[in-house]
Amino acid sequence: MLAYTFRRLLLATPILLGVALVCFMLVHLAPGDPLVSVMPPDASEALREQLVKAYGFDKPLPVQFGLWLWHALHGDLGMSIASGRSVASEVFNAVGYSLRLAVLATVIGFMFGSLFGFVGGYFQGSWLDKLASACSAIGVSVPHYWLGMLMVIVFSSQLGWLPATGGGPMGQSAWAWDWAHLQFMVLPAITLSVIPTGIIARTVRAQVAEILAQEFIVGLRAKGLGEWGLFRHVVKNAAPTAMAVMGLQIGYLMGGSILVETVFAWPGTGLLLNSAIFQRDLPLLQGTIWVLALFFVVLNLLVDILQTLLDPRIKRG
């Protein structure tokens, strides 16, 4: 198992380098001048050159990449052009917010998705199955920024139960695990959980239906197991796939929630990316994308390892 993990880690290294190269290139290939946002419109040519030098944009691209990578490996992702703060600390802070939200949303999604999936798989073709399938189809297809706005209108504006936007009470910048902070998470987490609910429900339903049609289910009945005994076997057989889908969903939600984080002004990576794009803040954009990609690679790795632990049929060689 250890050897397997080590081998997978080694394999992940070139992926990380490749990802670093791709996000560096993407950001530099995009049109626009990053210095426009920091320079006054009437800046002199001398000031411009000074800034270009300060940010290192005068060096050839390969050298820029090499330098960036070298610093990145030491935990220094450069300075944000727009805010002047260290990119690493901004990204780190935002990742914390996004991760909390993504994990909560995925947990909600996993609970409801598994429930709908098991109900659908067990009672195939019944009205319960149709209801669960309809719910998951709606979950996958509804535009979630629209759902987010709807939730804000209903639960914040109309009912006034929960705050509409933000990542915590006014005037407090640090996160804390109390209701004053948690209440800000409720609406965005529910909004975000709709997609994983739908995806997990569909995966689990297909899994459960497939498992129940297998011969070993008859075998288990033939040795006298009751419905609950059978259920244990179905869960253990469905778990590897469900876990894999859940792990990947956390990855998607980490970087893919730009719209929802923007709607709720949740200070996560999505909001950070959004502002970095609009401000042409190259170091921030580059750093955020790279850290998100890192997360995705690591999550994939964890999912793979978890799957080999759960499913004995996957070879550990």
Binding site: K223, G224, L310
Partner: peptide
Amino acid sequence: RRQLQALRGPVAAMIFQEPLLALDPVYT
């Protein structure tokens, strides 16, 4: 249903054509 379950195993048992399909793959 309960009496049937009590009968399956201690009174009557079954073996199948393809044990790879008839045994649960994720249990030893």
